[in-house]
Design a protein around this nucleic acid. Structure first.
Lengths: 212, 212
DNA sequence: GAGTCATTGGGTCTTGCGACCCATCATCGG
DNA sequence: CCGATGATGGGTCGCAAGACCCAATGACTC
């Protein structure tokens, strides 16, 4: 699980990004602050592998903040108006990634994974960087969730939309109730849960099923 | 259910906001686009009560777009650098609300509800507007969910984080298993569900419990 | 061809769950 | 002061759910 801290003075952006990143199965936003100094403060009590920092913030811009953070966290800079000059400065200050706010969420998610894995995206050429990001596009699912079979996923999807009774599941899938229970048993084992309620919650959390 | 369309050229912002608004129990984002013309196009096939429009977009700014939208949707403008002059122009073009991207999500959520309910926030003084927003801070919960008691909510919150077994719930709340079952029975009735799995899903959907 | 695995299904057994009945006590509003 | 409601319990009953064994088939790999 990658722990993320977000620093951005535009609260709407910060909160939205927080929600979005939290929906990833392999990341968790542990803090949202709105200034550089607040980020330094927050990281003292709450460690985070990754910090996403807006470069345009009032009261000491993001650059000086990143410099001050040093080794405590790895910073990814996001900017409204991404310029090469900004990128240069961010890289020199120690940022591991630099992105415009115009990039899709999936790109930032890939960057978070790449940087958490030790990559420094600012050292790479644009082509190299895109190539690296490509390899990190897929979330590393929980070891359990990754090994779910197609049928098991199907059952989880139904579970997550409220089809919880064994007989209903059996009807929907045109199989016997016994088979449903067998599938559920393996799902429980793989997800390390003990009943279908917990399985449904896990399914929603892992993004296996869209929560309606 | 309030249907929302988001138009913003900063995709990271748009997607994040989409996730955040989707987590509200009474709203649903039905489309995310990155330009004014794309918004007009999208609204032709997918109706939405509310459109959240960035005023700073390349290729014809948000203002002209709002003008063109007319009666099809009610626009709420968000801006990076909120100025009085921008606010004026937005109001004249027909926007029903105007907010800086620095406002908290809860404020925008309240504004969405207020505008969907027919209010025009741009016509109000700052004090009046804040007063109106205050009355819309709470989501209008489902008729069933609204009548849940404090204790029932508490049980739902635990359910939604995976505390599903009766004895565990009883332990956490320091009450007998029988009382837990009694509370669950009334929850099922109020939410019109038939078991704790469906109740947990409803709880997550209604925003009664934060999905961890 | 042997082996692995997904999918289907069987049986049995214990426990948990949900439906239904009930009572007690405190709090709060009329 | 009294009725309503919420929170706490009790009991019973039938069925569902989950844990544990197992087997047959088909597909795919080595």
């Amino acid at each position: 699980m990658i722990r993320i801290m977000i620093a951005d003075d535009h609260q709407l952006f910060a909160e939205g990004l927080s929600q979005a990143l939290n929906s990833l199965p392999d990341a968790r936003v542990v803090g949202v602050v709105n200034s550089g100094p607040a980020l330094e403060q927050a990281l003292k009590t709450q460690p985070a592998e990754i910090s996403i920092v807006d470069i345009e913030m009032p009261g000491g811009d993001g650059i000086t903040t990143i410099d001050a953070l040093g080794m405590r966290t790895r910073a990814i800079v996001v900017s409204m108006y991404a310029s090469d000059e900004q990128k240069e400065r961010a890289a020199r200050a120690g940022a591991r990634g630099f992105f415009s706010k115009a990039v899709p969420l999936t790109t930032l998610a890939a960057a978070v994974r790449a940087v958490a894995d030790g990559k420094n995206l600012t050292e790479l050429s644009d082509e190299e960087r895109d190539q690296v990001l490509e390899t990190y596009r897929e979330a590393q699912l929980d070891p359990g969730a990754a090994s779910l079979t197609a049928r098991e996923r199907e059952i989880l999807q139904l579970l997550a939309i409220g089809v919880s009774a064994t007989d209903e599941l059996a009807d929907r899938l045109y199989i016997s109730q016994k088979t449903v229970k067998n599938h559920l048993a393996s799902i429980f084992q793989k997800l390390a849960v003990s009943d279908r309620t917990q399985a449904a919650i896990e399914a929603i959390r892992l993004g296996i099923a869209r929560p309606s």
